[in-house]
Design a protein around this nucleic acid. Structure first.
Length: 103
DNA sequence: CACTTGACAACAA
DNA sequence: CTTGTTGCCAAGT
């Protein structure tokens, strides 16, 4: 069963452990299917039904670029902090400490 | 089929 | 900080 690109991205994103974050480039590299744009594009289509921790996906600099697309812009940062990921000025603090990569 | 858009990455200036 | 370029590839128009 070949899944849509969204679902492939979702699977990769779901592998990000709690309290960690990942980047579009990492997800794209993990999938080895497309590019970082595809990840953002897929996450843009993500719905609550998909149960995808999109708040754990930040750009390469650790900035919460996607928060503008959330129901409430502060929700993304709030969720991250709730998981132990500190966010400051729309960026992840200690990014390298929480940055997760596929094994 | 052609063109545009997009939650990007990476680099240059 | 901004602006520009190139690469990437699916979906929408």
């Amino acid at each position: 069963m070949e899944k849509n690109y969204f679902e492939q991205v979702y699977e990769a994103v779901r592998q990000v452990p709690h309290g960690r974050v990942s980047t579009y480039g990492i997800i794209a590299d993990y999938l080895a299917l497309g590019s970082a744009r595809m990840v953002g594009w897929a996450l843009n289509h993500c719905k609550p039904h998909d149960q995808v921790p999109a708040h754990r996906i930040v750009n390469r600099n650790g900035e919460l670029t996607g928060r503008n697309h959330w129901p409430h812009p502060d929700m993304m940062a709030q969720l991250l902090e709730s998981e132990g990921v500190k966010v400051k000025n729309n960026k992840v603090v200690d990014l390298e400490k929480v940055l997760w990569r596929p094994v």
